[in-house]
Structures are given as C-alpha cells and as structure tokens.
Amino acid sequence: MRVQVRSVDNVTIVDCAGEIDLYSSTRLREALLKALRSGIPSVLVNMEEVTYIDSSGIATLVEGLQLSQQTKTRLGLYGLRNNARSVLELARLHKVFNIFQHEQEALEKIPSTRPFEGP
C-alpha cells in the first residue's frame, strides 16, 4: 500500500493506493492523524486506488473522524470503489462521513461542510 500527502489550496489530500489491512493501515493512520493535527481546515482521503479495505482500515478512518471532531477539521473521503463503499455501508458509517464521487467535487464541496459533531 502507498500513502502520499499533497496540498491543494487549503486542503490536504491523503492519497492511498493498494490494499489497506492490519499491516498497512498503520501508514494511513500516521499520515491521516498528522494531517488532522496540522491545523489545516480540510482533509480529504483519496481512495480511488484503494482495492481492498478491512476493519482496521475502517477503524483508522473512524479514528480520523473522531480526531477531526476535536480539531474542528473537515474530513472527507472520495473515489470509493464498490468494495470500500459496501463495507462502510455494512458498518452503517457511510452516513457519518462526507463522501464525494471524485476529487473535483470533493474540493468544491468540502469547504462548505461542517466538521463532524458526533453521531
């Protein structure tokens, strides 16, 4: 799995590629939590190239969501493939995340969303 971080305007984008499991989710966790603590107003996780995600990957995203509540950061996901969307729906988490189709939509809409305020 590869994780890279870039900035577009006032948004930090965490690009993920490959399979997110118990082993590789630590890399996503490190990058995501660092971005959320950086003071930037919005963070997006690009999942276009994520081919697999297990419960540890989902747990990492939820941990990010909880941190975003504390840091008042807007957090969004985009580019979810069917399998990632399915596991989020199964866990009933698809309604608590800001989920966008693609990067352009995410960059346009994330500034107008509200930071997570709890379930």
Partner: peptide, 17 residues
C-alpha cells in the same frame, strides 16, 4: 453495536455477514 461510531469491533460483523 452499529449505533456506535468508534474504531474497532467490526471484524466479527464482517465475518458474520
């Protein structure tokens, strides 16, 4: 419980499903 929003506890759910 799926009413909770917290990390962890989903692996068994996926196995059961």
């Amino acid at each position: 419980s799926l009413d909770e929003v917290r990390p962890g506890g989903l692996g068994t759910l996926f196995i059961n499903c």
